[in-house]
Each structure stands twice: as structure tokens, then as C-alpha cells.
């Protein structure tokens, strides 16, 4: 795995390099600033597989650098792990929104670094799976159904608003209880996702999911949110609990957004995705269970959609789990 580590403290970089070597990661380059990192990245023939970025650096900081790296087409899906001090947790949200996949805290501990690098490997494996799939599709559209099952999370290369599902889970696992309390998860379920999958080639299915992701993203009015495809026709968004999200309004906007594609879908003999929006799922302040349960709750609610019998305030509401 080819890794670039970026930190403006040379001694810390030495320590990090030593640590990476001790964990059997030997192909590690280093940069002492964000600017130097960009120069190194742009000069590579073989792109990096992973970035380790210090959050707080003089000049361009790690979050800005993360955003710059994500803007490069070849690194839209490359795992980025932020290195931060505990006191910089306020930056964590910003880092995830800038496209980071995970973070590790200083002082570094080898065990935690090993765990984080395992996550990196799983993202790389997911990304490689998508690349392999694309190659297979190029050879034969029919190969998709054998290559990937309907219930697997997908990385949709063309859906810019989408983040890998593992990153969404990481994000929730990293939030403290108070911060988890201030977030909510919303599930979006494609009712006819199974039918679309059965009747489409791999490429067509990914295109339709990308259209669905785009319509969902447009319906989320929060400024800061994360959206992922969880597989089985389920999308999940994490957004601030106090945002003005309304499941009913979102449902209407998604339908209106997809309606614009109707003629194209009909021409291609494809069914438009029918998307249900669930009521937001939240967690209690004193709930100490698995934070990712909120995702499962959101998926369940997305599959149920908005019950017609609910009072309008409940349909709009953020009433909690």
C-alpha cells in the first residue's frame, strides 16, 4: 500500500514513519506541508493508496488539504485518515465533511493505528471491487449480477454527494454521546430497487442508483450532511438534528426531481426508482448502545416510509426514537 503522511513537525513524521514500518507498511512517503504534499501527489505516476494528514498545520491545514485531494479525480475514493489531537475534535465534523474517512488521535498508539489501517484496507478493497466491477461491465454487461449482490453497499463513482458506507459508520462511532444526540439519521428506500436490479445490467443499476442519490441529496436541505448507499435499495443520511429537514417535503422533492428523468427512463425501458423517505431516527442523550443502531433504525424507517395516518406534525417532526 502506497501511503503519503503529511505533518509539519518533522520529528512527528519520523515517529509516524517508524510506527508505520513497525506495522509492516513500508511504502510511506512524507511531506512537511500541505503545499509540498500537493506537489508530491501531482508528480506521482502511480497514485497513492492512502493519505495520513495532520489536521492542524501552518498555512494550508489538513482539512483544506483533504478537500484539495478529494477534488482530484484519481483520489475521489482514496482513503484519507486525519491525525488529530483530542482537543481538536471540533474539527472532526469538518474533516468528515471535507471527505475524510476516519481519524486517529495523538498521542499515537500502535494498536489504534493498526485498527485504523484495517479500515483503510477495507475501503481499498471496496474501491478495488468497484474497479473490478467496472472492468467486468466493460467486458460484459451481464457479468454484474454474478459479481455483486443486491444487498451489498456500493461506492457510486459518479455520485459526488455520496460517501462510502463504512465512513458513515465510522463517523457515528467516533461521535461522543452528546454529539450523537445532536445528529439524526434518515433512511431512504427504493421500493422497486430489487426489480430494477433484476432487470438492469450492472452499469444501468449503478446509473439509476446515482440518479436516486442525486435526487435524495437535492432534497436534504441541511448544509452539512453525509449520505451513503447501504445496499438493498437503502440510502442513509446523517444530518444535524436541528436542521429543517422534513420527510414529507423531501419525499415530494425527490419525486419531482426524478420525474424530470421519466422520459429518458421510458425511452430506455427502465422503471423510475420509487423512493420512500423515513422519519428521522435519533438517539437519547443517555443511550449508551451501539451508535450505528441509529443507522439501522433509519433504514427500517425508510422501508416503512411516512405512514399516511400520522398527524402532520409527526410527519414533519424530529420526534426521536
Amino acid at each position: 500500500m502506497k501511503i503519503l503522511a503529511v505533518d509539519d513537525e518533522p520529528l512527528f513524521l519520523d515517529v509516524l514513519m517508524q510506527l508505520m514500518h513497525s506495522c509492516n507498511y513500508h511504502d510511506v512517503d512524507r511531506a512537511g506541508s500541505a503545499r509540498e504534499a500537493m506537489e508530491i501527489i501531482e508528480s506521482q505516476v502511480q497514485p497513492f493508496d492512502c493519505f495520513l494528514l495532520d489536521v492542524q498545520m501552518e498555512g494550508m491545514d489538513g482539512i483544506q488539504l483533504c478537500r484539495r485531494i478529494r477534488a482530484l479525480p484519481e483520489h475521489r475514493l482514496t482513503p484519507i485518515v486525519m491525525i488529530t489531537a483530542m482537543t481538536e475534535k471540533a474539527y472532526v465534523d469538518e474533516a468528515f465533511l471535507a471527505g475524510a474517512n476516519d481519524y486517529v488521535t495523538k498521542p499515537l498508539d500502535r494498536t489504534e493505528v493498526k485498527v485504523r489501517m484495517s479500515m483503510v484496507k477495507s475501503i481499498l478493497s471496496e474501491r478495488n471491487h468497484v474497479k473490478l466491477l467496472a472492468k467486468q461491465i466493460a467486458r460484459s454487461e451481464e457479468s454484474h449480477s454474478a459479481a455483486r449482490t443486491f444487498d451489498e453497499p456500493l461506492i457510486l463513482e459518479d455520485a459526488e454527494s455520496l460517501t462510502p458506507f463504512t465512513t458513515l459508520e465510522n463517523y457515528l462511532l467516533k461521535l461522543g454521546n452528546m454529539r450523537l444526540f445532536t445528529s439524526m439519521a434518515v433512511g431512504f428506500h427504493i421500493e422497486n430497487g430489487g426489480d430494477i436490479y433484476d432487470k438492469s445490467s450492472g452499469l444501468e443499476f449503478m446509473d439509476i442508483m446515482t440518479d436516486a442519490a442525486s435526487a435524495i441529496a437535492d432534497s436534504i436541505k441541511a448544509e452539512n450532511y453525509l449520505l451513503s448507499y447501504a445496499g438493498s435499495g437503502d440510502f442513509v443520511a446523517i444530518l444535524p438534528r436541528l436542521s429543517s429537514f422534513s420527510a414529507t417535503v423531501a419525499q415530494e422533492q425527490i419525486e419531482a426531481g426524478l420525474e424530470e428523468f421519466r422520459a429518458i427512463y421510458m425511452e430506455d425501458g427502465q422503471a423510475l426508482p420509487r423512493i420512500r423517505v423515513g422519519r428521522p431516527a435519533t438517539t437519547g442523550l443517555l443511550a449508551f448502545g451501539d451508535p450505528t443502531r441509529m443507522i439501522q433504525d433509519a433504514i427500517s424507517r425508510g422501508r416503512q416510509g411516512i405512514p399516511n395516518t400520522l398527524h402532520s406534525s409527526e410527519r414533519l417532526g424530529v420526534l426521536g426514537a
Partner: peptide, 28 residues
């Protein structure tokens, strides 16, 4: 603050816990 930040990042990782903690407190 920048100096303290750099000391904090390295010191704790190299086992100088008290030094790292005091550097972090100054930065904060």
C-alpha cells in the same frame, strides 16, 4: 501556540506524557 502544539503531538507519542499534557493545556 504552534510550538506547544508541535511539542504536544510528539511528546505524548514518545512517552513524555506530562510534557505532552502541559503543552496541550497551554495550546488550549
Amino acid at each position: 501556540s504552534a510550538s506547544a502544539h508541535r511539542i504536544a503531538g510528539v511528546a505524548g507519542t514518545l512517552g513524555f506524557g506530562a510534557l505532552g499534557s502541559n503543552a496541550r493545556k497551554l495550546e488550549e
